[in-house]
């Protein structure tokens, strides 16, 4: 099942084009990885999918992005609703300077879910879903900033899944973490795949190869190649892709 379909997307910061004619589709309950050198537009592309670029002044979007067949840039689209469906985890763990409990409860409270569902249950399920429950169940009232970075990042994932999005975008979620915490997040991605569609940006080629089903290779604002991960890493169609994944370019 196709979740996102992107059709000839162009993106501009002022007059500078950051994305040029991108077309691809994201499959439901699969992990799509975006790779490419620094500054090639991976984050920009990711932020187009939940319209977080709207918060940056002077930016412009051209082309279409369909979520379940509906154009998310059409006028009249409720951006707040869109972001509830498309959650996001950032590069640096950014829990709010509040308790662990309040962090996870933030989304449900803001959306009024706590009126219809049992909040403690949402919180436990979300923390379990993010593989953090066992580590924090006895100190939910503690300041979130007292957690280790890896735990903070899993808390951010818990916070995101607490509102039951359909898609989770992750922008280099492991780049601030040590190898063990990275491994935990990667395992977590595999288990999240059962319920969510994941789009991740990564600098780490092995990570893309290990966890993803689909891989897109970006180069200077263009999508050079997009295919099944196995194919990209074994028989890429483009010379540039091969040079990049073997470390000869980039």
């Amino acid at each position: 099942m196709e979740k996102f379909r992107v059709e000839s997307l162009n993106f501009f910061y002022g007059r500078v084009a950051a994305l040029k004619d991108i077309s691809l589709s994201v499959q439901e309950r699969q992990i799509t990885a975006l790779i490419g050198p620094s500054g090639c537009g991976k984050s920009t592309f990711l932020r187009c999918l939940n319209r977080m670029n709207d918060t940056i002044r002077g930016t412009r979007v051209q082309g279409k992005i369909f979520l379940d067949g509906q154009d998310i840039y059409k006028s009249g689209i409720n951006v707040v609703e869109l972001r509830q469906r498309v959650g996001m985890v950032f590069q640096r763990p950014n829990p709010f300077p509040q308790s662990i409990w309040d962090n996870v409860a933030f989304g449900p409270r803001v959306l009024g879910l706590d009126k219809h569902f049992h909040l403690p249950e949402i919180i436990e399920n979300s923390l379990r879903g993010a593989a953090l429950w066992e580590e924090v169940k006895d100190r939910l009232k503690q300041d979130a900033l007292s957690l280790s970075l890896g735990q903070q990042q899993r808390l951010c994932i818990a916070r995101t899944i607490a509102v039951r999005p359909e898609i989770i975008l992750m922008d280099e979620p492991c780049s601030a973490l040590d190898p063990i915490a990275t491994l935990q997040i990667e395992e977590l991605m595999q288990s999240l795949k059962k319920d969510y569609t994941l789009v991740i940006v990564t600098h780490n080629m092995q990570q893309a190869a290990r966890v993803s089903d689909w891989t897109g290779f970006f180069w200077m604002g263009e999508l050079v190649e997009f295919d099944v991960t196995e194919k990209i890493f074994t028989r890429p169609a483009q010379q540039l892709t091969e040079d990049y994944i073997t470390g000869r370019a980039g």
Binding site: R83, G87, N94, T160
Partner: peptide, 14 residues
């Protein structure tokens, strides 16, 4: 930090 604002907005908060 801007990252708090981003986190809030990305959660679907107004």
């Amino acid at each position: 930090p801007k990252s708090y604002r981003d986190a809030g907005l990305a959660m679907g908060a107004t």
